[in-house]
């Protein structure tokens, strides 16, 4: 008997060693092959190119980017653009998702039906198609920039995007930089492009459908008995929600919602199809300018993995806190 265990142990070790060895061998072979291929064809490799001037403009950015800056700065701008659309997207999706989740639980039949219809429509159509549709609506159905509609004083909407007043830091505090009609464009103030708007709306609308389901499932998970007990204690509907249902539902809502936030951020990579200069778009342009596919894709992968790990770490932290609080109570 003991011999058999010992033998099984040895076999297990052998198999694992074999697997790891083969994997290393395979990885080594692939790396060697790529390296050899690149060298044999005289294709430049290495990350040195990141320090060279990018030589292309990026349509919109949070920083003052210009073509003379280096590739790594272009990547940074791309990453900032990804966050610039993902973070407001998270917020918008959360609000919308919570509203729809509550609507689906409403005693009102029409609200319930609307909520269900929303979820079923937006979940069952590919995000890519939704982004394209939003973009088409924004660029085709809006007037050209010369005839921009000023739907609020200082707010211009046109094919070139949404122009709005922004606190101007250069001017005295409290003053706003107002957009005005220029020769070809709206000048002054701040603008967001239709590409940005399309990605923002598309991501938010799509993720909201999933978040609504998560919210609904979380609330439904709180047993009916508790709600009824709270009602018997004389708590109002609002109080029941605030003090009984939500605290418990949140524990079930937060982990999947966190994953959904991560999904939204990953999905922002689809921005490339509507011409929004996110990280993928910048990587794609760089890849084409320099021909350094391996490096550009490696950067992409590293960034997204870092985002995933960060999200996972945050969720783990949240769970740990919940557990601590749970045991203290």
């Amino acid at each position: 008997m003991r011999r058999r265990f010992a033998e099984a142990g040895r076999r297990a070790f052998l198999w694992q060693a074999l697997a790891v060895g083969l994997l290393l061998l395979g990885g080594w072979w692939v790396a060697g092959r790529v390296e050899g291929e690149l060298a044999a064809r005289g294709i430049r490799s290495g990350f040195g190119f990141l320090l060279q001037p990018a030589g292309f403009e990026i349509g919109e950015s949070l920083f003052d980017f210009h073509a003379g800056l280096a590739y790594w700065q272009a990547f940074l701008v791309g990453f900032a653009n990804t966050l610039r659309v993902a973070l407001p997207g998270l917020l918008l999706a959360t609000v919308l998702g919570a509203l729809i989740g509550f609507a689906r639980l409403s005693p009102n039949f029409l609200l319930r039906a609307l909520g269900t219809a929303y979820v079923e429509v937006f979940r069952n159509v590919p995000l890519l198609l939704q982004l394209l549709t939003w973009y088409f609506l924004l660029t085709e159905k809006l007037p050209p920039v010369a005839d921009a509609v000023e739907f609020l004083p200082g707010f211009f909407l046109s094919k070139s995007g949404l122009a709005f007043p922004l606190p101007a830091f250069a001017v005295a505090a409290g003053e706003l930089a107002w957009p005005q009609r220029g020769l070809l464009n709206i000048e002054g103030g701040a603008t967001v492009t239709p590409e940005y708007l399309a990605v923002l709306l598309g991501l938010a609308a799509y993720s909201a459908a999933y978040l609504a389901e998560i919210v609904r499932a979380g609330i439904l998970s709180v047993s009916r008995g508790q709600v009824e007990a709270a009602a018997a204690l004389g708590l109002t509907a609002r109080q029941r929600m605030r003090w009984v249902v939500l605290p418990q539902a949140l524990r079930l809502i937060v982990p999947p919602a966190g994953n959904q936030y991560l999904n939204l951020t990953k999905n922002s990579s689809l921005a490339v199809v509507v011409g929004y200069p996110d990280l993928v778009s910048v990587a794609n342009t760089t890849l084409n300018q320099t021909g350094q596919a391996v490096e550009c894709i490696a950067i992409l992968i590293a960034v997204y993995l870092a985002l995933s790990l960060a999200t996972a770490a945050l969720l783990a932290l949240y769970n740990a806190r919940l557990l601590r609080r749970g045991s203290a109570a």
């Binding site: 697997a19 790891v20 994997l23 692939v30 092959r33 790529v34 291929e37 690149l38 990953k266 999905n267 990579s269 689809l270 490339v272 993928v280 794609n284 890849l287 596919a293 391996v294 894709i297 992409l300 992968i301 997204y304 993995l305 985002l307 995933s308 790990l309």
Partner: peptide, 28 residues
Amino acid sequence: LCAVYIELVRGLPLIPVLFMAAFLFPLF
């Protein structure tokens, strides 16, 4: 090994993976 593969791939959006298929696979 399995955990690393699963988590690695699940952390990625599909588009970089498709780029790999288009640009990197042919090289090796």
